[in-house]
Write a protein that binds this DNA or RNA. Structure first.
Lengths: 100, 100
DNA sequence: CTAACCTACAACCAAATGGTTGTATCAACT
DNA sequence: AGTTGATACAACCATTTGGTTGTAGGTTAG
C-alpha cells in the first residue's frame, strides 16, 4: 500500500495513468510530451508497473502502456476505509445526542 | 496533490490518521505505540498537518491530534477522476459494440 | 518555585528518489 | 545484412526522506 500511494504521489505518473487509459500509447510516445529524458519517463512507467497500475503489451517494436483500474480500486478502498472510521465517529456522536 | 498522496504513502502516517479520528490522542500518546523516537512521530504528524490531513488542538500541556476528513476527500476525488477516465473508455467501447 | 512533562526544532546521517548520460539488446524496414 | 527505432539497464549525482540525538521553551503538578 505504501508503494501504491507513493506511485500516485507524482504529477507526471498520474498524468501517464490518465493518458494510458486506452492503452494505445507507447513509452516513447508518452515520453515525447514531458520535459525530461526518455529514461526518466521509462522509470516512471516502471514504478507504475511494479504496483500494478499499468501493464505493457508489445506491438511491433514498441510497448503499449495500458492503465489497470484494479490497482486504482485498491487505493480507493484504502481511502474508503479511513473515511469509514470517520463516519463511525459521526454515528457515535449522533447516538450521544439522541440520548438527550 | 503530490504532497497529499505522499503523506498517505506511509503506514505509520495512515495508522496515525486512523487513530486520530476522535481527536483525543496527544502526540506523545500516539508516539508511545510506535517503534521509533518521539521526534520521528512528531515529524510524521507534521507531514500530515502540512497537507491538512490533521489539525492540532491544545488541551492543557498536550496537543490533541484530530484527523480532518476534508483532505481525505480531496484525495478520493483525485482517484475518482482517474477512474472516471477509465469508465469513459468502457462507455466508448460499449458504444462501438452497439453500432454492430 | 521547582521539578516533571509535552512539544518544537536544529543538526546530523543513511537510504531512497528523481533526474542525467551512456551502453546494450531487440524488432523492423530497405 | 545493416541501419534505424524502441526499450532496457547500469552508473552516477543532487536532493529529499525518515530516522537519530540533543537542546530549548512552555505548561502543569506538587
Amino acid at each position: 500500500m505504501d508503494r501504491l500511494f507513493h506511485a500516485l504521489a507524482d504529477a507526471t505518473r498520474r498524468d501517464i495513468l490518465r493518458r494510458s487509459v486506452d492503452g494505445e500509447l507507447s513509452v516513447s510516445r508518452l515520453a515525447a510530451d514531458y520535459p525530461m529524458s526518455f529514461a526518466a519517463v521509462q522509470k516512471h512507467v516502471a514504478v507504475l508497473e511494479q504496483v500494478g497500475l499499468v501493464t505493457k503489451v508489445r506491438r511491433g517494436r514498441e510497448l503499449l502502456v495500458r492503465s489497470e483500474p484494479e490497482a486504482l480500486r485498491r487505493a480507493r478502498e484504502a481511502l474508503d476505509q479511513l473515511e469509514e472510521a470517520w463516519r463511525g465517529r459521526i454515528q457515535r456522536m449522533s447516538a450521544l445526542l439522541d440520548e438527550d
